[in-house]
Design a protein around this nucleic acid. Sequence first.
DNA 1: CACAAAACGGAGAGGTTCTCCGCTTCCTCT
DNA 2: AGAGGAAGCGGAGAACCTCTCCGTTTTGTG
Lengths: 197, 197
Amino acid sequence: MTNGRAGAAAEPPRRTDARLNRERLVAAAREVFAEAGPGASLNEIARRAGVGPGTLYRHFPDRSALLSAVLSDRIERLGAQAERLLVSEDADEALEQWLRAFLAHARVNQGMGSALLVEPAGESGPDCHRRILDMATGLLDRAQLHGSARADLTADDLLHLVIGIALSTTQDDRPGRPEFLLDLALDAVHGSPRRKG
Amino acid sequence: MTNGRAGAAAEPPRRTDARLNRERLVAAAREVFAEAGPGASLNEIARRAGVGPGTLYRHFPDRSALLSAVLSDRIERLGAQAERLLVSEDADEALEQWLRAFLAHARVNQGMGSALLVEPAGESGPDCHRRILDMATGLLDRAQLHGSARADLTADDLLHLVIGIALSTTQDDRPGRPEFLLDLALDAVHGSPRRKG
DNA sequence: CACAAAACGGAGAGGTTCTCCGCTTCCTCT
DNA sequence: AGAGGAAGCGGAGAACCTCTCCGTTTTGTG
């Protein structure tokens, strides 16, 4: 299930020129999104890829499809790390490490990954969301069973917290701040529920 | 002092028609933003206010200026509550209550308030951000001094956490979820730093 | 080599943000 | 009251964006 085959499932473009253009588009998108954020002009991406707008839209019906494509390899890497961590010794430590990696992932994309992950509304990128949720679920389950993570927590909540940290610190360039916030959240994960006042 | 001096500081429009148009614009913006979110068309707002686009842009040089105006009364209310809570008995409880109110505030605006608060980049809306930060600082200071809030926390961090919760749950309509996440964050606020693994 | 299918690219429709400037409305001063 | 100047209005329009449609080019194949 975490074998990651699903990610590489998309192999639609048959003709070699189509394949090439697709790759160019993803490369250009990676650049432009990095420069201008997730709201960057798709026209500009097409231009920089050296193709017409029509070509872009045939390959990627909407913005989130393109975002998914850009993020997919990063997500693959997260998946690989999750698999490694799932068989590690310390379940708590595994969860923590993965969440750190996930935070970095979410931040690096200026929240564009997060946008996708929070709202799987887009037709094309639901598995993006699913995969991440699966990873988190696996690691959290284990940390609840064999570690000290509190039981009343869902993977969904945890991801929302971390995504929130990423989103709310994209403009903040003080180093270490997001990590500090993550530490706070991790404290909460291991703490037991407070008595309500 | 809750008379809104600071908030009403902007009193530029002298002529009565200008004043009126400004109010119409804010009212229309409140409606349209509520319907279509913070990315709503400014043209549409102008149309619904019964003024030309030019008029809108003279009163509010950019989108965030308009957002600020819409939010300002809500922020006034938050400020009033902060003042009440600042002289309440239980400093921890005061902070908690205010954060709950702030979370509701941030969520109600579909994250548009949050967007403003996180990035005071816009020329027009920095005091929006300042005021909120001041409120949070006051309440947190007191909770650290007289309550049980941990000392290594800044108001900025706290706001980021809560804003993050708001942002990452705007699409989530399961009731109580955001509050649960806030509870988690509050646990962290009162917990002591964990030993690193 | 020829030919169908696949893919391309760009013109263009419809929307948006934001500016510019001639015209209208208000306020003030005599 | 009435006139003059300043403040404000509004909409035409430039520049841009998303996304579609379809004639033309490219590719793989028999």
